[in-house]
């Protein structure tokens, strides 16, 4: 059978999601701290430190500008770490996937569970940064609540991309390539820390193809009580990344595990 046949989705993923949730619940506090510390430090450090030197960035106080970026950045990071390191542990090191595949579960159910789980954890991270930003008075209106579905969708896109890497990884070391070659450059090209318009034109074109850019373009207006321009296009790009990457990740996982 062709490993890249379409995914077959069902609600059977729920028990596997619950398994991951139960593990997370036992370690929730260090896990949340780990997810939050980095983006929080960037947001507060750059926002207030650098922000005090800058008049306005993209028409906003720098702390407000970067808060929207930090929500997306935090979501991306949390989804990526979960889909890489944690999923790889379950697949390769602890052999949790083997145990689950011995039950009446298909690999499709299992990879879908990993996708939704990593997106859930990512959404929680994004939402926590949003809550901190709101507490600091950086959120203009309840329109910002649209960020909650946005961070979940962003989490799906980055979890799916991460699962591709996991399905290909021979060991943990392999993930370094993904961070160095993809995640870090994308963070700098996607308008998290400074407006994309500051980039040379060629890089702006590259930026327009990156999923994080689209998440940031949706998040930033929502912070300032504005409906994002071309919202559906940005949503469509994130959905397309999530679907295509999930399909590819599942195909690679089938090829790796069901041989």
């Amino acid at each position: 059978m062709n490993p890249f046949r379409p995914p077959s989705l069902s609600l059977r993923f729920v028990p596997v999601w619950r398994r991951n949730f139960l593990v997370w619940r036992k370690l929730a506090i260090p896990s949340l701290l780990g997810n939050l510390a980095d983006p929080m430090i960037y947001m507060l450090g750059f926002g207030y430190g650098l922000g005090s030197l800058l008049p306005e960035v993209g028409g906003l106080p720098y702390i407000t500008f970067i808060a929207a970026g930090a929500v997306c950045f935090s979501t991306m990071n949390a989804a990526t770490f979960e889909a890489l390191y944690s999923a790889f542990s379950r697949m390769q090191v602890q052999r949790t996937w083997d145990a689950i595949l011995n039950a009446p579960m298909a690999l499709d159910d299992l990879v879908l569970a990993e996708l939704v789980w990593a997106a859930s954890k990512a959404a929680l991270s994004g939402a926590a940064i949003l809550a901190v930003a709101a507490a600091l008075g950086l959120v203009a209106s309840p329109l910002a609540l649209w960020l909650l579905p946005l961070v979940f969708l962003t989490g799906l896109a980055f979890a799916a991309l991460g699962l591709i890497v996991t399905a290909l990884a021979p060991s943990y070391d392999f993930f370094m390539y993904y961070f160095t070659l993809f995640v870090t450059p994308m963070t700098l090209l996607s308008g998290v820390f400074f407006p994309v318009e500051q980039l040379p034109v060629a890089l702006q074109a590259l930026s327009a193809a990156l999923p994080l850019s689209h998440a940031v373009r949706l998040a930033r207006p929502l912070f300032s009580d504005e409906v994002p321009q071309g919202a559906w296009l940005h949503v469509a790009v994130l959905v397309a990344y999530a679907v295509a990457a999930f399909w590819l990740a599942l195909g690679l996982a089938r090829r790796r595990l069901l041989k």
């Binding site: 619950r18 398994r19 052999r95 579960m105």
Partner: peptide, 25 residues
């Protein structure tokens, strides 16, 4: 019963059984 143990190291004995039962619906 697989060749290599793949119990869930983060769970207790009872949780391992409970969670595995859920995979069977």
């Amino acid at each position: 019963v697989p060749q290599m143990d793949n119990l869930d190291p983060d769970f207790t004995v009872a949780e391992n059984l409970l969670v595995y039962g859920r995979y069977f619906g």
